[in-house]
Design a protein around this nucleic acid. Structure first.
Length: 107
DNA sequence: CTGCTGACCCAAG
DNA sequence: CCTTGGGCCAGCA
């Protein structure tokens, strides 16, 4: 039985290049719809060299709410811009335009 | 088991 | 734009 953490990480790894998902969304896919904050905590503990595309996870309003010590909002924004994501203002994207939808995903 | 913490979310004011 | 306030819950000491 996979735990919440493993599922969350698997789902984040599944976010396609150039797409984003919200913390709450990942929590839903991981089977615990109201554990959005826990998703942030998991990301906060990832090593700097992780293969998990943490920068594709933003909040539900399209804002970058990163609080990690190694990377900041500017780092995350440039990583997203490298994937073609356009920002409507500093640290805020039009999330509905880039939101990853998992219609084919089996929970 | 208890009691925090927090890269969240939503609704008000 | 900003701030409160309440709810939430996985992880950790």
């Amino acid at each position: 039985m996979e735990n919440f953490k493993q599922k969350a990480i698997n789902h984040i790894k599944a976010i396609p290049f150039g797409k984003v998902a919200s913390y709450g969304q990942i929590a839903v896919y991981a089977g615990s719809p109201r554990a959005a904050r826990a998703v942030g905590m998991i990301l906060n503990k990832l090593p700097a060299d992780t293969e998990v595309p943490w920068w594709r996870v933003i909040n539900n309003e399209g804002k970058l709410t990163i609080r990690g010590s190694i990377f900041n909002r500017d780092d995350q924004q440039s990583l997203l811009e490298k994937e073609g994501v356009k920002f409507k203002k500093e640290h805020e994207v039009e999330i509905e335009k880039y939101r990853w939808k998992t219609h084919e995903l089996k929970l």
